[in-house]
């Protein structure tokens, strides 16, 4: 007779969003403890290693130097320069990558044309373009921002294309049968469905933005945390060097954590 495939899932237990209790709460505590273990271990390692060598400044001296940087103000100029290059470049890169990625994800024809091109250029280390940007804009914020934008562009483009391409066929069919306009299809079906995947690209793009800015500053810049690190290194001001490294570590981690949290929110509603 007829063949029936069975593929149902049981309904999830009720109260999925309620505060966990009893064993659930203990589980959550253990999870949080496990998460804290890594930074604590890192700090312990730092405390152990720093007295052994002159090349690593002690945690306390580093934090004191960083505090001094904020109190006496020597850190602001570099911080503002790097932060604006990262933010502006990241936004520019996203603004370019997102619509292009969307179009590529939606159109097989466009993908056929551009896929080899993107796959090819993706392997090129973006930093080789920095001298070109320096030649065009001169040393300064413009060239650095441009470098950041180019670096952020590729991961966001690729993630957007891939996630838009994977939007479920039945949702697109639903959109067509409801006579959704192009704009409605994009805003109400494709982008929300692809959002978690796009966010992965944005998160990677953000990390790469930071890397690009610091490397660009190592190379040639008027201001910036990267420049300050290389100057501190050259003049053997180790406490200052580590202070800035620590600051970058914190900013990049917090920024990425915010994006990660946003991504999880998108994924789980």
């Amino acid at each position: 007779m007829t063949v029936t495939t069975s593929a149902t899932e049981p309904p999830r237990a009720a109260g999925i969003h309620e505060e966990p209790q009893g064993p659930e709460r203990a589980k959550r505590r253990r999870l949080q403890a496990a998460r804290m273990a890594v930074p604590i271990g890192f700090l312990a390692l730092w405390l152990t290693v720093s007295p052994l060598t002159e090349l690593v400044s002690a945690p306390f001296a580093t934090i004191a130097e960083l505090a001094d940087g904020f109190l006496s103000g020597w850190i602001y100029e570099g911080l503002v320069a790097t932060a604006s290059a990262v933010l502006m470049g990241f936004l520019l890169g996203t603004a370019a990558a997102f619509p292009i990625g969307y179009l590529l994800g939606r159109s097989t024809g466009l993908r056929r044309i551009f896929d080899p091109l993107i796959a090819g250029t993706f392997a090129v280390p973006r930093i080789i373009l920095y001298p070109v940007l320096l030649a065009v804009f001169g040393v300064g914020l413009e060239a650095e921002t441009g470098m950041v934008a180019i670096s952020a562009f590729f991961p966001i483009l690729m993630a957007t294309t891939a996630s838009v391409k994977q939007v479920s066929e039945s949702l697109l069919k639903l959109g067509r049968s409801l006579r959704a306009s192009r704009l409605q299809t994009a805003a109400k079906i494709v982008i929300p469905d692809a959002a978690p995947g796009i966010m992965v690209g944005i998160r990677i793009g953000f990390s790469i933005s930071f890397i690009a800015a610091i490397i660009a500053e190592f190379f040639a810049a008027k201001d910036g945390l990267g420049l300050m690190i290389s100057e501190a290194y050259a003049s053997l001001e180790l406490a200052r060097m580590y202070a800035i490294v620590l600051l970058i570590l914190v900013i990049a981690s917090v920024g990425n954590l915010v994006l990660w949290w946003l991504e999880r929110r998108l994924r789980h509603g």
Partner: peptide, 18 residues
């Protein structure tokens, strides 16, 4: 083309999960 007086239900899950 798709019309107002027809509505479709598909085999695959077509709910918007968000």
């Amino acid at each position: 083309g798709p019309r107002r007086d027809t509505a479709m239900v598909f085999q695959e899950d077509s709910t918007l999960h968000w």
